[in-house]
Design a protein around this nucleic acid. Structure first.
Lengths: 256, 256
DNA sequence: AGGTGTGAAACTCTTCACAGCA
DNA sequence: TGCTGTGAAGAGTTTCACACCT
């Protein structure tokens, strides 16, 4: 084991690697599916397939949480659901505000998986006075003047920004000033936040560009293959296969 | 799999690491901003700040593309924009279809950054006959019966799935059968696709769960700090700082 | 047998630090 | 002088393979 050096363990805290954290929701979703179908236990192999990862990775991931499986048998579905939920902090309810109720904001408000898993839409906020009072997904939109009050009254610590890019930083600043410490940003901007505030970003156009890169490379390879004829230096120049998507992913938070 | 078993050479091909590819769109966005403000050159330091990464990483990233900078000076903005665009395959236009025109699909269709950067919404497709013909973002929605024809007629190779989870795999299968080889999936499901097809996934609920994990950890640390010592548990938050968000990120594609 | 849990190896990504060029 | 480009070190992640428990 460790040579007794006082080296910073880096991934500190309770030591679950970011990459693992990013996959826990995936496992949880797969487990929930099994649970609904009343499956009592799963092997790492089966669960891994359902979650779209490989079994070695899954076992390693679970090993960071503890020893929740039974050798020769597998994992108890209900028990794992609970353990992962707890680890992710989903046994409590997180009030969330969504700022910017355009198409995207409305889509998010309507998103079922929201309420279902530990999150509660505490408020919808928009800068347009014409929106105020209009119900979206059964929740009346409130004007952004109320932002600070809403956050304090509801103890909101997670905010979702679905505004146009131009407004994002400003909204972000107000959210943070009011006490929000985690932000999910859908606006195509880099947000700057003080230390201690986490930002995760979802950007459609970035995803598409990454796809385009690979798409282009496929086209190139095809042409090359046609020119060369088969049997290149590496017979298998095909796609290299990173089994799962780009969802949660690895690099995670972004203070400052 | 086909012929060769063995291992994938991984990052192979022309050797740009996935992590770098995932950041190129970020750089491109920052550069576009500079370009619009007619800034002629940038240093790695400045550009890195604008893109939300650190400069060493940026320089390393660029070194995979070639030597496009000038020592002692920096990078020519326009030239870099071109080089990155080319590398990402954005000098050509990619026709894209969006399947599932609910709130989310509509939001995507309306998303400006779309058309602006190498992508063209070739068609909007929905299974609801009542939607057919209705224009969204100026484009008439077409019924899913037309899916195969649309894809072939337009030479579409990138598809966006914004349907409910239940329909996603089916839609995916049809897209792939019709010739689509890159898919951006917004439905909360693991899609299975044949080898050679790339899938990227965006999942709101996963992002929120990751935030919740960190949020919970912050709360825990605070409590711990408070217990240890009465002094203000102010900005105690350690957070080790992964400077950028979870956007594109590292693990990338997912065949099979 | 059957499947988990985990050291150790392999690989990828990030950061450092500085040589070298404009 | 100033900033790029990069080898090398370091950190984090994935995969392997097998000991160990049921």
């Amino acid at each position: 084991m460790a040579t007794g050096r006082s080296h910073r363990p880096a991934t500190r805290s309770r030591g679950i690697p970011e990459a693992t954290v990013a996959r826990l929701p995936l496992y949880l979703r797969a487990l929930t599916g099994l649970s609904e179908r009343s499956v009592p236990t799963v092997s790492s192999e089966e669960l891994a397939a359902a979650a779209g990862v490989n079994s070695a990775k899954l076992r390693k991931d679970f090993s960071y949480l503890g020893s929740y499986g039974t050798r020769g048998v597998g994992y108890d579905v209900e028990y794992l659901v609970y353990q992962i939920s707890r680890e992710l902090g989903l046994t409590q309810d997180w009030p969330v505000v969504i700022v910017g109720i355009g198409n995207l904001g409305a889509a998010l408000a309507n998103y079922g998986g929201f309420a279902s898993r530990g999150f509660r839409v505490a408020a919808l906020i928009d800068a347009d006075p014409a929106m105020a009072g209009k119900p979206v997904a059964g929740i009346p939109v409130q004007h952004s003047d109320e932002l600070e009050k809403i956050i304090e009254d509801n103890g909101v610590s997670i905010g979702v920004i679905a505004t146009p890019a131009g407004a994002a930083q400003q909204v972000c600043d107000r959210l943070v000033a009011a006490g929000v410490t985690s932000i999910l940003n859908f606006a195509p901007t880099v947000l700057s936040v003080p230390d201690g505030v986490d930002v995760r970003k979802v950007d459609l156009s970035i995803e598409l560009q990454i796809l385009a890169f690979h798409e282009q490379r496929k086209a190139g390879e095809e042409a090359e293959a046609a020119a060369h004829d088969g049997s290149g230096p590496v017979a298998a120049t095909r796609r290299e296969a990173a089994e799962q998507g780009p969802d949660g992913d690895v690099p995670a938070v972004m203070p400052a």
